[in-house]
Every structure is written in structure tokens, then in C-alpha cells.
Amino acid sequence: MDSLVVLVLCLSCLLLLSLWRQSSGRGKLPPGPTPLPVIGNILQIGIKDISKSLTNLSKVYGPVFTLYFGLKPIVVLHGYEAVKEALIDLGEEFSGRGIFPLAERANRGFGIVFSNGKKWKEIRRFSLMTLRNFGMGKRSIEDRVQEEARCLVEELRKTKASPCDPTFILGCAPCNVICSIIFHKRFDYKDQQFLNLMEKLNENIKILSSPWIQICNNFSPIIDYFPGTHNKLLKNVAFMKSYILEKVKEHQESMDMNNPQDFIDCFLMKMEKEKHNQPSEFTIESLENTAVDLFGAGTETTSTTLRYALLLLLKHPEVTAKVQEEIERVIGRNRSPCMQDRSHMPYTDAVVHEVQRYIDLLPTSLPHAVTCDIKFRNYLIPKGTTILISLTSVLHDNKEFPNPEMFDPHHFLDEGGNFKKSKYFMPFSAGKRICVGEALAGMELFLFLTSILQNFNLKSLVDPKNLDTTPVVNGFASVPPFYQLCFIPV
């Protein structure tokens, strides 16, 4: 009986604490739906499609509103004006990374994606500088992407125009580009180590996009005490870190300090320079996690976009025909596509942009946080508050993009057929937390897609009208449904 009384008292205290925290903070924060004790607004949000729920709530509470995930307040920004004001106009104040408990377990605050403060700034600055020195957006990395595009075309030829699921092959190409940047090595598509790495990356994007992960991140005790797919994700990350550590040891034994070959060499050189400046942010643990982040951000996002792009091109054969006509006119058949071609191919450029806009790969991006107490639109948001960005509300804005739910390359073309930029184009987020590999991803999408369409016609196994382009999961990332196609050599 005594234990029951204690339990009831504990629960009562928890409920009172929950109510007090919510009521004391709500006077400062933007308005929002009334949260339930302990669980907050979790029942009012469709976990399978958070973005749709945010759109519905914005119609009631406006472009800036507050939700509670458990006891934790989260300020939501919906629509271009609110997102721009926060991420661009007040970029420094909104540059923090929001709480992501599962990532905390995986990387302990290291790396480039989930770190904060001085650690994040130094690692991000170093990573950007190193990638630029190796030619991100310049010639040397373009050579690597072109080489991988040629290998991709050869792998597709091996399908002999038979029906195939493109998931694996389209994942190999961007993964190999990242391998060449980090390890100075590309792998054969049949290499077992490479296959294991690909498998872990593919599993992780599916797990991260599941409703279960949303629950884990908002009720963090689940991570330590409950079984579930989150444990598989943590094991996959541990596998990748151990693999990278092996490569780091190989580099330490063979590195030429006067001739760095890749990202690992550059990081080890930085560690050597910083060894007298303790404590340094440049450690082996930081290198492991930064490399894992580059793999995660640079492989599955690009391969998922490529997979979605081919599905949309199957669905819209008239678009595919126009792209192939432009390829034939500008590039021809006797040389590989290059980035200089893009400025002469406005329709193809528009298609690449429209694919990214339409699929809305990361509907709410990753959570941000404010780095200080900030007054925002007459609300006071306390330091450390998590900020949720609705990228969907920007990419699918119906004023900027008429009929935003329709796939239409003319969203990025003017009346004369010239490519038209849009400030609403934010597939990689915006501001200080914009994806480090934005330029690389854009290069890969253009070169891989043009190389495929230069060499193959795409054949659907069903009537294009019957192809479903609805994402199968739409949590962290929008993942396309399973499909097969035939690559018919031109």
C-alpha cells in the first residue's frame, strides 16, 4: 500500500510540474494548442506526416506557434517570411542545433551535424575549407563525379535492359564520391566492405524516417530501456565508426604531411598542428563522427533524390523527352556531361530543381535551437528552445509555385524558357546551418541524371499514369515507394 501511495504522489508531482512548466512558459512563447500533461501535443500531431499537421496548425495559430513534445516546448516556423527572418536575418541567433537524443547517444555531441557552439563552428569551418581545397564546386571533385558517372552508366548497362530496382546502384554512385573525398578511394560496386557500408546507410535513412524515431526523440528514456529499431540505428553508426577508425589508422601509418590526399589526411594534419593548443576540438573521436556525418549527409540524401527523380521522369515521359532533346543538342553522344553545360541547359536545370522542390526530401529539416534569449515577432523565446522549420511550407508555397503539388519544371523557367532562380528554393535548409555539401549534391544530381539520360531511355513496367509517387515514409525524410524500371541503351 505504501508503495502505491508513493507512486501516486510521484505521478501527481510530475503532472503538477508539467502543468507549471507549460503555464509559466506560455506567456512568453508564441500561441499554440493546449498541451496535455506529460505528453504535450503529441496526440494532435500525425507522426506519419508531421508536415501536414504543421500546415493545419498554422492555419489556426499563424506562421509562428508553439507545440509541446512531452514536456519540451518547440517553436514552429511556417512559411517563407518566418523562416527567412529566423535563419537568414537572425542567422546567428537561430544557428543552434536542437535536442536530438538519439544523435546524442550516437555521437556524444561530436561531428558537424549535431554539434553546437565553438566545437560546431570550428569543425564546420575546417570541413568547408577542406572540401573547397579539394575542389568542391571546382574541377578536381567534378572529375571524381564524372568518373563515377561513367562507372554508374557501365553498371546500368550490365542490367541488359531487364527490369531492376535502382535503389542499390543509385546509392553506390554518391557513396563512392564521398569515399573518394574521405578515403581517396572508390570501391567496386561488388566489394563486400562497400556493400556493408551501403547497407547500413540505407537502413539508417529508413529507420530515421519512421514514426518510432519521432517518439524516441521526444521521450528519450525509451532509447535506453525499450527495444526497437533505434538500437539497430545505433549499432549501424557504431559499425561505421569502427570502419572509419580502421581507415584512420591506415592513414596514420602512411600519411605524407607534405601531400595530403583526402579529408582524413587533412584532419590528422590539423590534429598535429593543434596538439599544443589544448583542449582542441580536433580529436580522433571528432574525426570519426565528422566522417560519419559526411557519409550520412552525402550519400543517402543524394541517392534518395536520384531514385525519386527517375520515378518522376517515368511518370512524366514528356519531361524526359525534353531533357534528352536538350542533352542531344548541347552535349551530344561523344563526350561526358560537365558542369559548364548546365548554363546552356535551362530546361534540365529546371527539372533538377523541380525534383528537389517537389519531393521535399527533408520536410522539417533537422531541429534548430536559439543560442540566446531572443525577441522574435513580439515573442520571447528562451535560450536553448528547439525550433522546428517547415521546409515544406517554403518549397510548396502556392504563391511562389502555382499548383505546388504538381510536378512542373516551369516553376523554374521564365516566359522565355530561361532558368529562373527562386529564393524559396531551400531543399538544403538556409542560413548558417545550410548543408555543407550543397554544391557537391547539386553537381552530382546534374551529372548523374544527364549521364543516365544521355545513355538510356527509361521504360516503366506499368502505365506511367498508374505510377504512385507518394512517399512511403514522410517523417525525417521523404522516401519514394518501391518501383522497377528498364534502362534501355540509346
Rank of each mutant, 00 (worst) to 15 (best):
V6S: 14
V8A: 12
L9K: 01
L11H: 01
S12T: 06
L14F: 11
L14A: 09
L17S: 06
L19R: 15
W20L: 10
R21L: 13
S23W: 08
G25D: 15
K28E: 10
P31C: 04
G32T: 02
P33N: 00
T34D: 07
P37A: 04
V38K: 02
G40R: 01
N41P: 01
I42W: 11
I45A: 07
I50S: 07
I50L: 14
K52S: 13
S53W: 06
L54Q: 01
N56C: 12
L57C: 08
S58R: 10
S58T: 07
Y61W: 08
Y61E: 01
G62V: 01
P63C: 10
G70N: 06
K72Y: 04
I74Y: 15
I74Q: 03
I74D: 01
L77N: 00
H78G: 05
Y80Q: 06
V83T: 05
E85G: 09
L87R: 03
I88M: 14
I88V: 12
D89E: 12
G91K: 07
E93N: 14
G96T: 10
R97P: 06
G98V: 07
G98N: 08
G98K: 15
P101S: 14
L102F: 10
A106C: 13
N107S: 13
R108N: 09
G109L: 10
S115I: 04
S115M: 10
N116K: 15
K118I: 13
W120G: 05
K121Q: 14
K121V: 10
I123V: 13
I123G: 05
F126E: 02
N133H: 09
M136G: 12
M136W: 15
M136D: 07
M136N: 13
K138I: 08
S140V: 07
I141A: 06
D143A: 13
A149D: 00
V153C: 11
E154K: 08
L156V: 06
L156I: 14
R157T: 08
T159P: 01
T159R: 05
K160N: 13
A161N: 07
S162A: 10
P163T: 07
C164A: 04
D165A: 02
P166D: 00
T167I: 03
T167P: 01
F168E: 13
L170R: 00
L170G: 00
C172E: 03
A173V: 04
A173T: 01
A173R: 00
C175G: 07
V177M: 03
S180R: 05
S180M: 09
I181N: 00
I181G: 01
I182Y: 02
F183P: 00
H184L: 04
K185A: 09
D188R: 05
Y189D: 01
Q192P: 13
F194S: 02
L195I: 15
N196S: 13
L197Y: 05
M198F: 14
E199R: 13
E203R: 03
K206R: 11
I207R: 06
I213V: 14
N218S: 14
N218C: 13
F219R: 03
P221V: 07
I223F: 11
Y225L: 15
P227Q: 07
H230Q: 12
N231D: 07
N231W: 08
N231S: 14
L233G: 03
K235Y: 06
N236M: 02
A238L: 08
S242P: 02
I244C: 12
V248R: 04
H251M: 03
H251R: 13
H251P: 02
N259S: 13
Q261K: 15
Q261N: 09
I264M: 08
C266E: 10
L268R: 05
E272L: 11
H276W: 10
E281S: 13
F282A: 05
T283N: 15
E288D: 04
E288Q: 15
T290R: 03
V292I: 12
F295L: 14
F295W: 11
G296W: 14
G296Q: 15
T299G: 06
T301Q: 08
L306D: 00
R307F: 01
A309G: 09
L310H: 03
L311A: 04
L312Q: 03
L314Q: 02
L314T: 09
L314K: 00
L314R: 00
K315L: 01
H316T: 03
P317D: 06
A321P: 03
A321I: 13
V323N: 00
I327E: 00
R335I: 03
R335V: 05
S336E: 07
P337G: 02
M339C: 08
M339Q: 06
Q340D: 08
R342V: 11
Y347V: 03
H353G: 01
Q356V: 11
Q356N: 06
I359A: 13
I359C: 15
H368F: 12
H368W: 06
H368G: 08
T371Q: 07
I374G: 01
R377Q: 07
N378C: 02
P382R: 07
T386H: 09
L388V: 11
L391K: 10
L395Q: 11
N398V: 12
K399M: 15
P402A: 11
P404G: 08
M406S: 13
F407S: 00
D408V: 01
P409R: 01
H411E: 00
G416P: 05
K421N: 14
K421G: 14
Y424M: 12
Y424D: 04
F425G: 04
F425Y: 08
F425V: 03
F425I: 04
M426R: 05
S429R: 04
S429H: 05
K432V: 11
R433H: 06
R433Y: 10
G437T: 07
E438M: 05
G442V: 06
G442Y: 05
M443Q: 11
M443D: 02
E444A: 04
L445P: 01
S451K: 08
S451L: 03
F456I: 02
S460P: 10
D463R: 09
N466K: 15
V472I: 15
V473E: 10
V473G: 14
G475E: 05
A477R: 10
S478Y: 10
F482G: 09
F482I: 12
Q484C: 10
C486A: 13
I488S: 09
P489M: 00
P489G: 05
